[in-house]
């Protein structure tokens, strides 16, 4: 075989490889996850973030509007401070409330934003003050058990 045959087949091989990579990049993975859209950053402090992780989605009315950039602990108040990167195209009022929700019963946790009525909008560096923490399943169960235990003794043990 001569040079031209090799060149042809190797060219075809490289084209196939590039096509496979393009397929993986465009069809299989989500390119927009790369975060090319401009964002602004606000913070929110929570008492308990549960299992929230960096890069978790931020949704408003179920629509993805941004991603969690980072999480750290405020060493004076001992609350979790979450940095939120929200897309520039979505503006929220100053009294927007943030809560930590779970998608499905075992799904990942995400931040839900609920817009308020204030006319001034959140801008970069602002802090969301109205927050509600993640529901921790163990606490919920123990609360339920204690309330059951509290009401049961009166019924289970009739007065002698």
């Amino acid at each position: 075989m001569n040079r031209r045959v090799y060149d042809f087949w190797v060219g075809l091989f490289v084209i196939l490889g590039v096509a496979a990579l393009a397929f993986l990049a465009l069809r299989v993975s989500n390119v927009s996850n790369g975060g090319t859209k401009p964002t602004y950053r606000v913070t929110a402090a929570f008492d308990n973030i549960g299992g929230l992780k960096a890069r978790a989605p931020i949704k408003s009315a179920g629509v993805l509007v941004g991603r969690v950039a980072g999480i750290h602990l405020d060493s004076t108040t001992y609350r979790a401070v979450v940095d939120l990167d929200i897309e520039q195209g979505y503006q929220f009022s100053r009294d927007t409330s943030a809560e930590i929700l779970t998608s499905g019963i075992l799904g990942d946790q995400y931040i839900g934003l609920e817009a308020g009525g204030d006319e001034t909008m959140l801008k970069s560096g602002d802090r969301i003050t109205l927050t509600s923490s993640a529901v921790v399943l163990e606490k919920l169960i123990s609360q339920f058990m204690f309330s059951k235990a509290a009401e049961n003794p009166s019924q289970a043990q009739p007065a002698p």
Binding site: L21, V28, S29, N30, G34
Partner: peptide
């Protein structure tokens, strides 16, 4: 099948690291 895949697979973390 495709939309769940696209939502969960990250270009840099998964495709890039595999490369």
């Amino acid at each position: 099948f495709w939309s769940q895949m696209q939502a969960q697979v990250d270009l840099f973390n998964d495709v890039g690291n595999g490369l």
